[in-house]
Amino acid sequence: MNTIYSALIAPMQQTRVDVFESIFTVFLGLGTLVGIVVVAYTLYNAYKYRDSDTADDDKDRPSLGELPTGGKGGKKLFLSFGISAVIVISLVIWTYTMLLYVEDPSADDGGQQEALEVDVTGEGFAWFFEYDNGIESTSTLRVPADQRVWVQVTSGDVWHTFGIPDQRVKADAIPGEVDESWFEAEEPGEYNIKCFELCGEAHTSMVGTLNVMPSDEFDSWMDDQLTMEFEMVDGNESPVTDGYEMTLEGQETDFERTYTADDFDENGTITINDVDHGGNYNVTITSTDGQFETVEEQFDMTGPVSETYTLEMNATESDATASGTNDGGDA
């Protein structure tokens, strides 16, 4: 009842789950009541006016061959028509105010944290997620609890529908269109993501997981995603600890930093934590003492990056290859 009361009075600042529960409960209650009343009334009349062996004193029954006309008493139809019109129209007007809220909840944020935005793409029986900062993941969507999350949903092939039943959020994934919706998860935990539009042979297994984490856990997960680790090795795969400089340049942000060999530890590795955006990065490794030719590489950061660069310590040949894993996000 509390939810209903608060729903009736103040639809603002509720999650979609609250909105749905309150409307659904009212409709269910009213619908069941109306259903029971009407069905009971119907059965009552059917029973009361059943044929019996007593003589029929109504001489005005329909007879074969009469020109079809109606019976009397049409006016009382308007009573029930009026009552149901009032009920149905009030219900719709009430839900309309909720619809306005659901479509545009930011109007009454009142001190809410900034919302998280995620691009969702359904393609070939899996869900792909991309955060604003370029971090991507497949099938598992991690979000912080108690924070509004906006999803921009589209498709990479056919018509899907992205839905998280426990959060009461759903959006069509149509190729070429972007459908926007939001949700706010209150309880940490794992929830099912399912597809609600037939999309091919494996539609039935097109599932994902929503992982709702406490805010601080989410932040530290995101920090982990934005971590880069670089290792410099030579042709024999032993660490190189001096004689170079590494410039890291973000293509989608202003980020540009140069790290000297001193910044690297004795294993020739460096961990960079202060990047705040994923996407394309250029790496340029120059030799400070002419021992190898400049290495120029590129990677697309969609998750934690771990790269090993081989600096061929040879005056003539500089054969630098990059190998390593670019973790494209969690599966």
Partner: peptide, 20 residues
């Protein structure tokens, strides 16, 4: 019974969840 459940579907906010 079927008609009453149809009214649920006409309320857009509920329809958002009943879809599919």
């Amino acid at each position: 019974l079927g008609g009453i459940t149809g009214v649920f579907l006409g309320a857009v906010v509920l329809d958002y969840e009943f879809r599919g």
